[in-house]
Write a protein that binds this DNA or RNA. Structure first.
Lengths: 227, 227
DNA sequence: CTATGTGAAGAGATTCACAGCG
DNA sequence: CGCTGTGAATCTCTTCACATAG
């Protein structure tokens, strides 16, 4: 129906993917897409894509498809991308430096406003036009910039204290790359990205596939080239 | 026992987390844990943890709990960690270099046996004791090492061709960090890690929480003629 | 009396099939 | 006609409650 009490989290994650695909299509000058084509490019089922989009209200034209730029803007609005999000990043090791220098965030409305590291050797370096600051300044920078998102790329041992300080400083969302499960106060949302877990799932699926002789050939994806 | 019809993928991902917690407990000299304590450390529901472990067959002692080292070894075996997995990594930019230098993989049985980049400036550099090779050598190295896992950390534009080459060379599992949806032939499993998607989900949850008091998302509602 | 292991209930997400609009 | 939008069926995962073993 029209009411939107809440959008399922699984749908939100896919909306972000649709948004990426639509941005590419718009840059390529494309005017409209069908659910089938968009679903193919996003790697999902066409009916599932339409159900995802139904949470935004009617936004397609029957018999035609979706207008690329309109749908892109609608999704961007729902995901809260009309306003930029200020982020702080704690832990400027290899991964942290990679995240700080990654251009994919800025183009999607996420801007780093503070980089922090405990190592004096790192402090003072410039990454992506931003200086690395001592962690002692964390609270001040969060307060001054109003950052609402914190990214943790520290060693596992200090991730929990950093999480506590971020939460206390007023950060409401935390993305954690350290291989520990963090606990945060109510009202602070934590998302975990564990690179080793991803590899272990892959390895397991491979092992399981090799051990099962009876294979199901439900290949549906690679429908030849491009549409 | 060996009879395992099939373990749900969601369970596999959590098993990897339990394994990490158990390894930490074992290093701390701990002998046994209860499901409640282990679940708390892993950030999951105790009953869910017991159901996850039930897929491995009985491995606890009623009235006592689980023996830490035994359970750790059991999970490691199920995840296929008794044998090391050879991985190749394509795209040695900031993120690729971070992955190549990340110690968390080696300690979990994943070993990089080849690093590849298209840029002559990168080729020849040493990262984590391994030289960066030109991508032209990709097929030879996969064949020579028998690598079964490929990690893609290239720009989005070249991720699909790299995926195709990895699959053709015999790699069976691919972990993709490039912000594109890859299509791979049947028999090759692709897992996507999109850092921007993670941030966008966080931002949406925060926005949604802020709007909770009155549940008013009318700014999105198509009152009549939304354009 | 402890804490595990598990069937059953519940919630959520995916897929299907078709009604309805252009 | 084609393609969207959606109710209903299907499937999977989660949570609960309790029997069961130590």
């Amino acid at each position: 129906m029209q009411s939107r009490p809440r959008i399922p989290e699984a749908t939100v994650a896919r909306l972000a993917v649709y948004l990426r695909v639509l941005t590419g299509l718009a840059d390529g000058g494309r005017r409209t897409v069908s659910s089938g084509e968009l679903a193919s490019a996003a790697g999902v089922n066409p009916a599932g894509l339409r159900k995802d989009l139904s949470h935004l209200g009617p936004c397609g034209t029957r018999g035609v498809g979706y207008e690329v730029s309109t749908l892109r803007d609608r999704i961007a609005g729902v995901l809260g991308m009309e306003t930029a999000h200020a982020c702080v990043l704690v832990g400027i090791g290899n991964l942290g430096a990679a995240l700080a220098g990654y251009g994919g965030f800025g183009s999607r409305g996420f801007e780093f406003v503070g980089l922090f590291d405990a190592s004096p050797a790192r402090v003072g370096q410039q990454i992506g036009g931003l200086p690395v600051r001592p962690v002692a300044e964390l609270e001040d920078v969060v307060a001054a910039t109003g950052a609402t998102i914190g990214v943790i790329a520290t060693p596992a041992e200090v991730a929990q204290p950093v999480c506590d300080r971020l939460a206390a400083a007023g950060v409401r969302s935390i993305l954690n790359f350290a291989p520990v499960t963090l606990s945060a106060p109510a009202g602070v949302d934590v998302r975990q990205v564990d690179l080793s877990v991803e590899l272990q799932v892959l390895a397991f699926l491979d092992k399981q596939r090799g051990a099962v002789p009876g294979v199901r050939l439900d290949a549906l994806a690679p429908a030849g080239g491009m549409a």
